[in-house]
Simulated scan of single mutants.
Amino acid sequence: MSGAFDDVFKANDDYVARFRLQGLQPVAARGLALVTCMDSRIEPLDTLGLQPGDAKILRNAGARVTDDTLRTLVLAVYLLGVDRVLVLPHTRCKMASVASDDEVHDTILDTYGVDTRSLEFKTDNDQLGALKHDLERIRHHPLLPKGLPVGGAIYDVDTGRVTPVGS
């Protein structure tokens, strides 16, 4: 590692000195699973008035409901106290601003010489359509309970506002 992570390990020392989360249970205290993007402009707890331990937070590029997201939601529902799911993509998302996965693959290949075509990035420039599709994937997953409350919203990275989106 040769120092590449010294800054974060030092920051962890400071965190440990003021750590106050001991004793939290591994369940979602407020029953929420949040699927959101990995974008560092999103602070999921503050954004939704949550505290550590309130929710299970699943993050990936574009806040997409992938097979792994569904696997995790099944575990969260049956083992970790989740009884509702919110999918929260955001404005100005790179994964929603490109025409296709091919564009991302080409950019990475042209810029870095790495062929990423074995990966599916799930880009979709119809962000609202992608969100509605993902909500339906959760609602109709055979291993998730019928009637599980599933909602969608868009987070505005410029204002912090969360706007609910109809199904």
Rank of each mutant, 00 (worst) to 15 (best):
V35A: 04
G62V: 00
T111Y: 11
T111A: 14
A96T: 06
M95R: 01
D158R: 11
G23A: 08
E103C: 07
D39K: 01
L128G: 02
G147A: 06
P142E: 15
P149R: 10
P164E: 07
L21V: 07
G151C: 13
N12S: 06
F19K: 03
V165C: 03
A153G: 05
G147N: 02
G129N: 06
D106P: 05
K146V: 14
F9T: 03
K10F: 14
P26E: 06
R18V: 14
H90P: 02
A76W: 00
D106M: 12
G113M: 03
R64F: 07
L50G: 04
D39H: 06
D13C: 13
L32G: 05
V104C: 06
D106C: 11
I138F: 03
D54I: 07
L135H: 07
G53P: 06
D7T: 02
Q25F: 10
A55C: 10
A130I: 02
A96S: 12
D46E: 15
G81C: 06
L32K: 08
R139W: 04
V165N: 00
R59M: 07
Q51S: 15
P26N: 05
R41P: 00
L80T: 08
P44E: 06
P44D: 04
V104W: 04
E43Y: 13
D115V: 05
I57S: 11
L32S: 02
K94I: 14
L45M: 11
I42P: 00
E43L: 12
F5A: 14
I138E: 00
L144A: 04
A76L: 03
G53R: 05
G152P: 05
L128W: 04
L148G: 05
A17S: 12
V82A: 02
V8Y: 11
A99D: 15
G151P: 09
K122Q: 14
G160R: 01
N12K: 00
A4G: 09
